[in-house]
Amino acid sequence: MSFATKSPWVIHYDASSCNGCDIEVLAALCPGFDLERFGIVNTGNPKHADIFLVTGSVNERNQHVVKQIYDQMVEPKVVVACGICACSGGIFHDCYNILGGVDKVIPVDVYVPGCAVRPEALIDGVVQALDILDQRAKALEAKRKGA
């Protein structure tokens, strides 16, 4: 395990969601399910974060904000799309200003379904994201040594 996966910090953003998945993301960080025992801390600064938890089907105005947060994050980084709205647009996929899921704006690594997403499923998704983060950190290290 590389350093990044020992205590990954998350940044959470609500991109046009109904708030159901957001309160479940916060509930996963609270004593009920406690992601903080893995060393995960919720931060507001994109440059401090390793994992980007996005909820919500993105609307036209929000796509620039999501793109900016993703661009500001430092490599290696992972994106987890939480909830049905973030995976595919959900029940709003035919609304006139909805793009239909976060993968239309930024590349997504893990999809977690559920309406609203269950904290247990979210923990499964974060654990898979940690594997991907580990691989990316090692690849980055190898490239730096080789170059």
């Binding site: 609307n59 035919d94 006139y96 200003n97």
Partner: peptide, 11 residues
């Protein structure tokens, strides 16, 4: 405001 508008009344 306008970051969460989904226009769902039209549905």
């Amino acid at each position: 405001i306008g970051f969460i508008h989904r226009g769902l009344e039209r549905l």
